[in-house]
Nucleic acid binder design. Structure first.
Lengths: 341, 341
DNA sequence: GGGCCATTCCAAAGCGCTTTGGCAAAGTGC
DNA sequence: GCACTTTGCCAAAGCGCTTTGGAATGGCCC
């Protein structure tokens, strides 16, 4: 059933029916009620494409997820982020479009998304240091918000980020406060901005505690369980192994835990683990006490908030940019303790 | 830049430009080359909505993910599935739309997706026993494929499923073959079809081995790490605890492993763990030997294949339904061993 | 009763594309 | 050289909606 048929069925013009459904005041309440009822009964919804063509809007938000040429991992936070964002989109009548793309085709993808008029705005994921996508998106004139930040970027933009530097600084201090001087950092890929900041926080914390920053105790890669395991094993086998691990993701931390287990080391007692925790729905760290000492920030909440920010930007494109920084919540769990003497 | 402008720029009609770009034979190759070059230079892509309106197709595939009212977990396989599917879609010029919805709004969501003409087809996730969505989708006349199956469904439909029953049967037999008679099942939610089949396989395996099927050793819930941990702990604390765990997801299995660790039990030596493994990119089980004895089947490959199946269905809606059953690959890892005497 | 507002509705244009039906020009067979 | 097909292109209609610019109706005041 389309507008024409529905309006014929009601004995009204298309104009009136359209206006009734879209809440315009030129229609009497009696008529509106009649129209709405009929639309529901015939389960009519305006055709998205026709509506989009007429209004010039797609009421659709794009998410471009690059699967790095450098790796094959699908970011495990993706699902929870989408769930959060999707909720907000649904509440505001937006659809969500996901495009998977290799890193080299990124720019082309953004350009085409704009040219095709497929989306009204988009969320940029996994910003890198001085990310060229910012300039591209600004040039394209497509409203966007960034999940994270890009250090070194010249152009203004809206973002929501976690204070990664602070979180890693304070957690490092927590560990050094427990007497640890050999603290390992298992970071994410350091072309990504959040990883750079995390490392800065870690280094600052180590320096202030008067600890050596040992390259042998710093690793970076895609944050898989296996990476956590392998890296922890090889570090534990060093002549002078770390007594604490600072980890970038709870998935990784699970791998580190497994490594300790393999080496017959007990978390907290023998070796400490602290991790960043995105509060993934399938990997909760919410027992009492939590399994891991952690810096917590819900990626699902981030998705919901960023979606909201983006919708606001679409509605008022010239509003000043909003830049939000969330502090991670530090929780002490069962995975850290004072250094063994 | 739109068609009108581009054709004016080229000194050609819109018809000719459109045909040149869409590969119709009525255009000379010289003209086509000129048009394609100009389109590229001005980075023109036809407007999705206009194209869709004219053709009656959206070139977009829908994915409806229900977040059960019964729980809040976002399925961790989601990201990898999307990555696989997205690749196929991109290769065939399809967009991917994701809709997140509460279970109670499911039917309404499907109906609206159809009425709005938003998608040309969709992938149905997490089918339940005798799932009413099959009838709904058939009534709507929207091409679809199912990831999994729905036992008890009367209508024919296309699906790709893993032979869950066989996988769990054989893995149960593997465990009983190692002498285990108290094998616990940590299943997914048993309103979901795959969980029912897994349980059947488990029960058949236990029966054939002459083992009791003890309700105390069977659990079902959302497959989180925490569920694995909690359930394993409480089962291990039974007067007559299990000597082996059969687990529905590797995330869960990580929780079980942690429980063993807490109770000072060694995997394989003291208690065995076998698990289903979706080959998630961030939680690989591919070491040599694998960490877990597992039934492996890549959900990413499933995504890619289902996407392909759906596109075929859209192209030839009246073709007979394809029903594909993949056998999980059984691998023996470091988490199972003979029962302690 | 005529003039004036509100109120309530409508006809038609336009969004950017595809596609039908057709028309010149060029090529072909006899 | 004629009738014919083929080639290469175009004008215009139509997809289903929104929105502009009226127009008809009824109520009110003087």
């Amino acid at each position: 059933m389309n507008l024409k048929e529905l309006s014929k069925h009601l004995g009204l013009s298309q104009t009136t029916v359209s206006r009734a459904l879209n809440g315009y005041p030129e229609v009497s309440e009696a008529t509106r009620a009649r129209v709405v009822a009929a639309a529901h009964a015939n389960d009519y919804s305006p055709n998205t494409r026709a509506q989009g063509l007429a209004t010039g809007l797609s009421r659709c938000i794009g998410h471009v997820i690059s699967v790095g040429d450098s790796g094959e991992m699908v970011n495990p936070i993706f699902g929870d982020f989408m769930a959060g964002a999707g909720e907000t989109y649904a509440a505001h009548g937006y659809d969500m479009m996901v495009t998977r793309v290799g890193e080299r085709d990124e720019a082309e993808t953004y350009r085409r998304l704009k040219a095709r008029g497929a989306v009204d705005g988009l969320v940029m994921h996994s910003p890198r240091f001085n990310d060229s996508r910012l300039d591209l998106l600004n040039d394209l004139g497509l409203p966007f918000v960034v999940h994270g930040r890009s250090s070194g970027a010249q152009v203004p933009y809206s973002y929501l980020d976690v204070n990664n530097r602070r979180a890693f600084y304070e957690t490092t201090r927590h560990l050094t406060g427990l007497g640890h001087r050999r603290v390992a950092l298992l970071n994410g890929q350091e072309q990504l901005d959040f990883a750079i900041r995390r490392r800065q926080g870690y280094e600052q914390g180590m320096q202030e505690a008067g600890c050596d920053i040992d390259p042998d105790l710093m690793a970076q890669d895609e944050m898989t369980e296996d990476y956590g395991y392998r890296t922890a094993i090889s570090m534990l086998d060093l002549p002078s192994p770390p007594t604490a691990f600072l980890v970038s993701s709870i998935i990784c931390a699970a791998g580190v835990r497994r490594a300790l287990d393999d080496r017959n080391l007990r978390p907290a007692k023998d070796v400490s683990i602290a991790t960043f925790d995105d509060c993934l729905s399938y990997f909760r760290n919410s027992a009492a006490p939590p399994v891991f000492t952690a810096m917590q920030s819900s990626v699902r909440a981030a998705g919901a908030t960023l979606a909201r920010m983006l919708i606001d930007r679409i509605n008022t494109p010239n509003a000043p940019h909003t830049q939000t920084l969330w502090e991670a919540e530090f929780v002490v769990g069962a995975s850290t303790g004072p250094i063994k003497d």
